[in-house]
Design a protein around this nucleic acid. Structure first.
Lengths: 124, 124
DNA sequence: GGGCATAGGGAATAATTTTTCCCTACCGCA
DNA sequence: TGCGGTAGGGAAAAATTATTCCCTATGCCC
């Protein structure tokens, strides 16, 4: 969590939404934890190797602080921790599904537009 | 538009979605242009005074390059330009509506969590 | 002991995005 | 001529977010 110097407007619904699950890996984490039911950090790290453990830790901590995921710490050694989605977290699932569907549906259009721009930049 | 040094995965639906309307002012712009039907830049700027004209210009340019909005330039002076949502752009509306609804619904929860964190940080 | 696994954090750096400042050019008005 | 309105962009600074590097600590196995 980083502290902000610019004020945020938490009466704007979109800003609230983005604050909670707008991070780079958060939708991914929410989706994956949902599918897994209850997951240990190491399982999550292995499943998303593109992100370093550190990043995932930080984003998990944020998600936890907003009660999107809950963290169960089992005492004893070796340490064991499990993350699972809360009921609140589950309310985000339909949104993530929608974002994903829209993106999949239109990715070709987006890729083509990127290509076109690349060509245009090369000419100019 | 900024050039990226890290690769992006345009086969991930969420990443595609975020790329297109994930910018700070983009959902706002899309929503507002939709409501207005067809708007001149100066009208948009006056409606969203929190953002400087420069930012809105840039985000409009990006939206245009992905064919989310279309730009009509009327020849003659003084210059006249009008932005409107394309059919493609309209497919984003339900998503924005959903994000907004979720945020409004849960903003109190989020505010409270922020408060709690602030207090905890102050104590420690 | 040395290596690997468990979970996690501090500090610095890099990448990305947003903002600020200041400029172009033309017309109309007083 | 000077000011305001039209639309817009370059360059640099600031803010935000993500990443890398290198630590903590414990237990197990060879």
């Amino acid at each position: 969590m980083y502290s902000k110097k610019k004020p945020e407007d938490l009466d704007c619904g979109i800003e609230v939404s983005m604050k909670i699950f707008g991070g780079k890996w958060k939708p991914c984490l929410i989706d994956f934890i949902n599918k897994g039911g209850s997951l240990r950090p190491s399982e999550i790290h292995r499943a998303i190797p593109t992100a370093t453990p550190r990043v995932l830790n930080m984003q998990l901590r944020e998600l936890e602080s907003y009660n999107v995921v809950s963290k169960k710490i089992y005492p004893g050694l070796p340490p064991k921790v499990e993350y699972s989605l809360t009921e609140f977290g589950k309310t985000i699932l339909p949104i993530i599904a929608m974002l994903d569907r829209w993106g999949i549906q239109h990715k070709d259009h987006v890729k083509k537009a990127d290509e076109t721009m690349k060509v245009l930049r090369a000419i100019r």
